[in-house]
């Protein structure tokens, strides 16, 4: 989908989130000189075009009690990647599932999944259960727990691609 400057203005102003007011789209429009009808029309088009994946609340997993998050990476051969990716992507424990090119020898892993949990122990246990249940325990895998987060949203990112 080709985005116009007007669309990007709208994307940009929504980076801060929707105002919590009875007519939030009207309020958003006021900030960028756009009528409520135009705001609604453009947002519906952006959603239909797949630019907006979904509209709704974005939670802080830390404050919801999800204190641990691990990037769980799997060394899956190219010919099995599609099947394993679809399989792990369908698991309730997995919040993201992507394939990325391995960079051997430093980095042999090709499939990335994200698993959140209330603690490190629950994440480790969930991954062990998942690996066994889905028949993927024989693929070499590692859990990379995050220890610090430095930056949530860059300037350009914020304008063009908030919240990815």
């Amino acid at each position: 989908m080709e985005l116009s400057d007007r669309d990007l203005d709208l994307v940009s102003v929504l980076c801060d989130g929707l105002p919590l007011a009875p007519r939030p789209f009207q309020a958003v429009g006021v900030a960028i000189g756009m009528g409520e009808d135009e705001v609604l029309g453009r947002l519906q088009a952006l959603q239909q075009g797949g630019v907006i994946r979904r509209f709704g609340v974005i939670v802080r997993h830390h404050e919801l009690g999800y204190r641990a998050n691990a990037m769980v990476v799997w060394e899956v051969p190219a010919d099995a990647l599609s099947a394993v990716g679809r399989r792990l992507g369908a698991c309730p424990e997995v919040t993201l599932c992507y394939s990325r090119p391995p960079r051997p020898p430093a980095w042999p892993y090709s499939l990335f999944t994200m698993v959140h949990g209330k603690s490190r122990g629950t994440v480790e246990e969930a991954v062990a259960v998942l690996a066994e249940r889905e028949g993927v325990a024989h693929y070499r895998h590692e859990l990379l727990f995050s220890t610090r987060r430095f930056k949530q949203c860059g300037a350009r990112y914020q304008r063009r691609m908030a919240a990815e």
Binding site: L14, C15, R53
Partner: peptide
């Protein structure tokens, strides 16, 4: 929603974009 935002349970309320659809 205001209370949940003040308690930091919600980061924000709005769209989640697909970065790949932006070009770039």
């Amino acid at each position: 929603l205001q209370a949940l935002r003040e308690a930091n349970v919600l980061t924000r309320f709005g769209p989640l974009y697909d970065a790949n659809r932006f070009g770039g």
